[in-house]
Amino acid sequence: MSEKAPLHYIYDGIEEHDNRLPNWWLFILWTTIVFGAGYWFWYHIAEVSPGQLGEYNAEAAELAKRSQGNKPASDETLLALMQDPKAVDGGKAVFQANCASCHGAQGQGLIGPNLTDGYWLHGGKPVAIHKVVAEGVVSKGMPAWERTLGAERVKAVTAYVLTLKGTNAPGGKEPQGEPEQP
């Protein structure tokens, strides 16, 4: 592109050329304007797409469909899982990362209750423990974990907690709740 002669105004010694605008710059300018118009048309005039909440609902429904295949937990399946060293190891890792800060690294209880003493606030049966982990106990400040951890990890961590039963970890918090009925 050719440089045009400077304009006649000179400000404190500063001159100005009047070069034409580079084509690639004009291309960016017009493309983004056309994109903007198209975007507005697509989402707000034609309303072809459902908007952000619609997209979220679809995503959530997809996930719900995927987790439909999950088998509900039962005493038997949880006890069987307890015998599976791989599952228990996985559960232990989850426990250390998410539960230990309140229940202690050995499950001896800190902010949350002792898990090793055979006393239970909400029942010591496998399904009862599973329910507490999965759904939480809002009034006591036990978070619901199934949403964050997913069904499999909740089962695994329940299996791990079952192995802690009766280990009576040293330095444990005093018992809370009822002793487990055999």
Binding site: E15, D18, N19
Partner: peptide, 14 residues
């Protein structure tokens, strides 16, 4: 432009 001692590239762009 002061430091470069050159004219501004394009008035119409500005």
């Amino acid at each position: 432009p002061k430091a470069a001692e050159r004219p501004v590239y394009s008035y119409r762009l500005s």
